[in-house]
Structures are given as structure tokens and as C-alpha cells.
């Protein structure tokens, strides 16, 4: 074989290797999902979903916990995140140092591991503010965690709004605030909604933060936001490591279904709103 032929041969082997890896990736990723579905689906029943936690475990407290954590985190992170993105995109003319600092802060925040957020939440809410373990503390910590995500994707949606629309509204005598609320935000709405939904997904799948902030009390319904609680993801961990593998898999299926639903909703929103809105880009 000549050197040239050997080179061609080697590249072909690499190609076969790459194709094998593609196959392996698909096999592993879908294998995990299929396995969880197969071992969890048969164990989903009314007792698990909506029963009282007694002799048999139930995820009713987790459903309530996940719902309240998600709403809490979004209610806090959405206005602050959107406000920050508006400040960064619509008012960047002055104070460029400040803008840079905010960018760096938000990038750094997005890189912090969630367990570090957890320990921060524990120090601030459970200890310093004296909340003990509470849904409120967990929700606020999660809000801070998703803030960079909301800021970044809102910024992208805002930047996609054509400059010509901003100019048109300003030229008509609109103030900046009126321009933002009547033109810029409505045009960017689908992108912002999509990013909020994805942020909700991040909250729902999170568990490391919650171990340290809401306490993983799996067997009691939370009475208020100041009560300790649990979430779907925490329940998966709890059931898994406390000898209920079937319930863990069933809870995992519920979690997966919620996540897939959320992703589909995001795609759907993007399609529905995305059309006809920014026609003249």
C-alpha cells in the first residue's frame, strides 16, 4: 500500500468510528429514557400521584412543591431578568463600564454549580434570615439561579426586534418607555415566553439546590411557603436512595413527561408566535 492509500484507509476507519459513536450515543440516550419509562410506567397509580403519604409513598407533596417552586422562581426571576435585559439592550448608550460589569456578573452566575447556589441559599435563607428549610428560600435561590438564563435569552429576543420599529416609534414622539412597552416587548414576546418556559424546565429538573434549601421532607404536604417541602426531582433521589426503586422510576416518568411537555410547549410557542410577527427584519 502506498502512503496515499494508507491515509485514505485511515480516514475511512475514522469515519466508521464516528458512525459507531453516533449509534452508541443514540443507543445510550434513548436507552436511558426507554428504561426509565419501562420500569416506571407500570408503577404509576392514583396512590402514588394523589394519595396521602402513609403506608405507601405518594408524590402529592412533591407535585405541590414543584409547582410552587416553579411559580415562585418565575415570578421573581421574570421581571428582574426582563428588566435587566431591557436595561442592557435599550439603555446601553451610557455607562459602558457598568454594562460590562453586569455582563460579567451574569456570565459568572450562569457558570456556578447548582450545589454552590444551594449552599448560598442555605446560608442566607435558612440561617441568616432564619427561615429554616422553606419553599420560599428554595424558590428565591432558584430564581437567582435562572436569572442569567432569562437575561441572556431575553436579550437575544430583544435584539431580534428590528431597529426600524424602534426608530419609527421614537420619531412619532414616543418616549423610550412607551416604545419598550408597546413595540419592543410585544414583538419579542414569543422569544421571551419561550425562554421563561425553558427556565421553568431548569427549575423543575433542579434538585441539588433544593437538598440544602427546602429540606426534602417527602411525606408532608407543605402548609405555606415557609414550610419545608420536596419536589419531583428530589423525590426521585429520595425514593432511589431509600429503597423504593419502583416509585423512583415512576416519579422519574412523571418528571420526564413534565419536561417533554415543557419542551414541546416551548417549540410550539415559538412556531405559533414566530410567524408574521417580525416580517420585515
Amino acid at each position: 500500500m502506498t502512503r496515499h492509500q494508507r491515509q485514505i484507509r485511515r480516514a475511512q476507519l475514522l469515519r466508521i468510528f464516528a458512525q459507531g459513536m453516533l449509534f452508541l450515543t443514540l443507543l445510550m440516550l434513548s436507552g436511558i429514557v426507554i428504561f426509565i419509562l419501562a420500569s416506571g410506567l407500570p408503577h404509576i397509580n392514583m396512590q402514588l400521584l394523589f394519595g396521602d403519604y402513609g403506608k405507601y409513598p405518594s408524590i402529592k407533596p412533591a407535585l405541590l412543591g414543584t409547582l410552587s417552586l416553579t411559580l415562585l422562581a418565575l415570578v421573581i426571576a421574570a421581571p428582574i431578568g426582563i428588566g435587566t435585559a431591557l436595561f442592557l439592550t435599550e439603555y446601553t448608550r451610557t455607562r459602558s463600564h457598568l454594562i460590562r460589569a453586569i455582563r460579567i456578573a451574569s456570565e459568572t452566575l450562569s457558570g456556578i454549580p447548582s450545589i454552590v447556589y444551594g449552599i448560598f441559599g442555605y446560608l442566607v435563607f435558612a440561617v441568616a434570615l432564619g427561615f429554616k428549610y422553606s419553599l420560599l428560600g428554595g424558590g428565591i435561590t432558584l430564581a437567582i439561579m435562572i436569572l442569567p438564563l432569562v437575561v441572556r435569552s431575553t436579550e437575544e429576543s430583544l435584539l431580534a426586534v428590528p431597529q426600524s420599529l424602534r426608530e419609527a416609534s421614537l420619531a412619532l414622539g414616543a418616549s423610550k418607555v412607551r416604545m419598550i412597552f408597546t413595540i419592543v416587548l410585544p414583538c419579542a414576546m414569543s422569544g421571551i415566553l419561550t425562554s421563561l418556559i425553558l427556565a421553568a424546565g431548569r427549575v423543575i429538573s433542579e434538585s441539588a439546590v433544593l437538598i440544602l434549601t427546602i429540606g426534602m421532607v417527602v411525606n408532608k404536604m407543605p402548609e405555606s411557603l415557609m414550610s419545608p417541602g420536596t419536589s419531583l426531582a428530589l423525590d426521585v433521589y429520595y425514593f432511589g436512595s431509600n429503597g423504593y426503586p419502583e416509585q423512583a422510576a415512576a416519579t422519574g416518568v412523571v418528571l420526564l413527561i413534565v419536561m417533554i411537555g415543557i419542551n414541546l410547549l416551548a417549540v410550539f410557542l415559538g412556531k405559533v408566535f414566530g410567524k408574521g410577527e417580525l416580517m420585515h427584519g
Binding site: P79, L86, F87, I112, F120, L123, I144, V177
Partner: peptide, 24 residues
């Protein structure tokens, strides 16, 4: 007023990072 509000939101991000660093 609204400019102030948006500015405060942006400051919050800075503050959050500052708080995390400070507490840790």
C-alpha cells in the same frame, strides 16, 4: 422612573453575584 426600575433590575444581578461571593 422606568429607567430607574430597569437599572435597579440590572443592579440586582450584580448584587446577587456579590452576595454569593461575600457569603461564601
Amino acid at each position: 422612573l422606568m429607567r430607574g426600575v430597569f437599572f435597579a433590575c440590572a443592579l440586582f444581578c450584580l448584587l446577587a453575584l456579590g452576595c454569593i461571593c461575600a457569603f461564601l
